[in-house]
Nucleic acid binder design. Structure first.
Length: 157
DNA sequence: GCCAACGTTGGC
DNA sequence: GCCAACGTTGGC
């Protein structure tokens, strides 16, 4: 018996990896590299399961918001960029025998009409969404089934 | 470019 | 273990 599907919101800067980049990647799948926050890492390492739903969020851009749907597509494994001297995500303190940073693959499912951050903030059904909380800086946050359904409704308009 | 908010680092 | 300084996130 499979565990119930869980839902997540994952932030990406579209300059680096937009929903279109992900859709164009082989198999529509990208490794979620570069997370250097322990809480966000723990979600990927300990809580995510293959098939979990992902709201693909664009941050650090002119129009922040959810731009696509995706799903978790792998079990956790070490983020290769932590060992790459030329990568901005290089972490000299992390050793291959004991990798500090783990990630999952994310498979893009579809682009959706942008559900903007402002629209999300205006939506009563999303009032308690973790990503909208004041001061939130986590790039990966859980989404409840009700919030997931509300986002699908907003995306279909 | 500004700035609020928060995480991390490192001296003590 | 405290806490100030610093760095980062991310919206505006």
């Amino acid at each position: 018996m499979n565990a119930p599907r869980q839902y997540w919101l994952m932030k990406s800067e579209p300059d680096e990896c937009s929903i279109d980049h992900a859709l164009a990647a082989p198999n529509g799948t990208v490794a979620w590299v570069g997370v250097r926050n322990y809480q966000a890492r723990n979600f990927m390492r300990d809580a995510m399961r293959i098939g979990d739903g992902v709201l693909f969020y664009h941050s650090g851009c002119a129009e922040p918001g959810v731009a696509g749907l995706a799903e978790v597509a792998s079990v956790p494994y070490p983020d290769p960029t932590q060992f790459d001297h030329r990568s901005p995500y290089f972490d000299p303190a992390s050793k291959p025998a004991q990798p500090r940073w783990m990630l999952v693959d994310v498979k893009a499912v579809e682009r959706i009409p942008l559900v903007s951050l402002a629209r999300m903030r205006a939506e009563a059904a999303l009032a308690d969404m973790q990503v909208l909380r004041r001061g939130n800086r986590l790039s990966i946050t859980p989404v409840t089934p009700d919030q997931w359904r509300a986002m699908l409704r907003l995306a279909s308009r």
